[in-house]
Simulated assay, not measured.
Amino acid sequence: MTVHPEGWRKSSRSHQRTSCVEVGRFNDGAAVRDTKDRSAGYFTTTDAQWSAFIDAVKAEKFD
């Protein structure tokens, strides 16, 4: 299946930095890519995986 993410955006905390990630959405999940090399592609997650990741970030599980 080919996925075509839309609405790519960087975190507002990235400010003007060029070395960060962007997230795009598609109907069943999210895609993540590196802003330093957008042509390198992206990886995808399901909605459930993305929600679990965001919840873990908010709970500071990665600090």
Rank of each mutant, 00 (worst) to 15 (best):
P5I: 14
T2H: 07
S14N: 02
R33M: 00
F26D: 00
E6G: 06
K61S: 12
A52D: 10
A31V: 04
E6Q: 13
D47W: 14
R13W: 09
G41P: 03
S12H: 04
T45M: 14
S51T: 12
R38T: 15
H4Y: 05
S11N: 08
G24I: 06
T45P: 00
R33V: 00
V32T: 01
A31F: 02
S39C: 07
A52E: 10
S14G: 10
V3D: 07
R9P: 04
G7A: 14
S39E: 12
S11A: 13
S19D: 15
V23P: 00
D63W: 04
T2V: 06
A56C: 12
G41W: 12
D34C: 09
V32I: 15
Y42G: 01
F62T: 09
W50M: 07
V23N: 03
N27W: 03
T46Y: 10
T35I: 03
A48I: 14
G24T: 02
P5S: 11
K61T: 15
R9L: 08
D55G: 07
T46L: 10
V57F: 05
V32R: 01
T44M: 04
G7M: 08
R13K: 11
D37G: 13
N27H: 10
A52I: 13
K61R: 15
V32Y: 01
